[in-house]
Design a binder for these strands. Structure first.
Length: 233
DNA sequence: CCAGACGTTGTT
DNA sequence: GTCTGG
DNA sequence: CCAGACGTTGTT
DNA sequence: GTCTGG
């Protein structure tokens, strides 16, 4: 699956690659984690790269906790939590690698999956807008009625579709993110039917990395450095 | 009809 | 063990 | 995904 | 909101 990824491609390269402009202060990410605001291209505004929160909260959810970070591509069209987003709210989740954890004999360790040249790609995503229930004020005996000011902020979230692994990822894991064919990105945003099959493993590689990746508060270039599997306990 | 769930992965 | 936060 | 918390009352 | 279970 995909629960952590990288996006350190410089913003000007992302802009030309995805034909969209970056409208925020872009910081390279070596350990993007669920719950964070991360760069995506949404269907309603495909000329912009903007940030949404990773972890889809359905429109009807009672609260904004516990968003869904992944959706199975095989069922995303039918599941109540995703069906409407799949039909009408798609996005490209920009990345240049993702992490998978695997136990190869001596404990669970992280690996980075990426293309040989670290080129950026789009993972298939769907997004949602959740608006907090507007509070009824003035009925609460102890409420002062003055603390709740303007309109509640809508929360925009996204989830990443998963599929079976290709030959490169298969030794690590039995699920992986859907990587769109570059040619399909526009069609995906457009609501058309595109291939959500596993990307070919051609030109992809896995690299063992430091278990410093485990802690989401670590986010620095050294994280993608190859780690010696044997030396690292 | 209303009530209650609505997700994935992995692990057992 | 299970939930929440990042 | 992993890391870290996981509780209450009352007092400062 | 929409689907499933009772």
């Amino acid at each position: 699956m995909c629960g952590r990824y990288t996006l350190f491609t410089p913003p000007d390269e992302l802009e030309s690659r995805f034909d969209a402009t970056v409208g925020f202060e872009f910081e390279p990410r070596y350990n993007a984690a669920p719950g964070q605001q991360l760069p995506v291209v949404v269907d309603t505004d495909p000329g912009r790269i903007q940030r949404l929160e990773w972890g889809l909260v359905p429109r009807w959810a009672d609260d904004d906790s516990g968003g869904h970070i992944n959706a199975r591509s095989e069922t995303v069209a039918e599941k109540p939590a995703f069906a409407e987003a799949y039909q009408r709210r798609r996005c490209l989740v920009l990345a240049d690698g993702f992490y998978e954890w695997a136990d190869r004999g001596d404990g669970k360790r992280p690996y980075r999956v990426a293309f040989d040249d670290d080129r950026p790609f789009a993972m298939a995503g769907v997004w949602e807008r959740w608006t907090p229930e507007t509070q009824q004020v003035g009925l609460d005996a102890f409420g002062d009625g003055a603390t709740d000011g303007g309109d509640p902020e809508p929360l925009e979230t996204f989830t990443i579709l998963t599929t079976e692994p290709n030959g490169v990822v298969e030794p690590l894991h039995h699920r992986m993110a859907v990587i769109l064919n570059a040619d399909d990105e526009g069609a995906w945003l457009n609501g058309d039917s595109v291939s959500l099959s596993p990307a070919s493993g051609d030109n992809m590689r896995i690299t063992p990395v430091s278990s410093a990746v485990n802690d989401p508060s670590n986010d620095r270039p050294g994280l993608i450095k190859p780690a010696d599997t044997d030396r690292q306990r």
